[in-house]
């Protein structure tokens, strides 16, 4: 059996890579991918807990998170498309009509 410490550490590393990507990149699409990485890290933690506690509940939560991520992606990419139609850019720093 894989130890819970190792699993949580892997999930924390992925989560932190996601945060770092979100903070340091200025490409909207990659920032958005970083968020997906964070959600995956959460799912990994949930599934590890399910395995180690022997209850299925955490797996169900992870399943709902996946459905939610799919919905979020549909809306997010639609927003990115509208922005691109008007501004021809996916660089956050060039979105400056409103003072960021």
């Amino acid at each position: 059996m894989i130890s819970l410490h190792q699993l949580l550490l892997l999930s924390a590393v992925l989560f932190v890579i996601g945060i770092a990507g979100f903070i340091t990149r200025r490409n909207i699409i990659i920032m958005f991918m970083s968020v997906e990485l964070m959600l995956n890290a959460a799912n990994l933690a949930l599934i590890s807990f399910a395995n180690h506690s022997g209850s299925m509940d955490a797996q169900l939560i992870a399943l709902f998170v996946m459905a939610l991520a799919a919905a979020e992606v549909a809306v997010g990419l639609a927003i990115i498309i509208t922005v691109f139609r008007n501004k021809q850019t996916v660089n956050v720093d060039e979105l400056n009509i409103l003072k960021w």
């Binding site: 894989i2 699993l7 699409i29 958005f32 991918m33 997906e36 995956n40 799912n43 599934i47 590890s48 399910a50 395995n51 797996q59 992870a62 399943l63 996946m66 459905a67 991520a69 799919a70 992606v73 549909a74 990419l77």
Partner: peptide, 22 residues
């Protein structure tokens, strides 16, 4: 971790649908 169904969903939904959409 014996989450067989979720592993399948992970491949189908994330790798298949979400990233294809990206």
């Amino acid at each position: 971790l014996e989450a067989y169904f979720l592993a399948a969903v992970q491949v189908i939904v994330y790798a298949g649908a979400v990233l294809m959409l990206f």
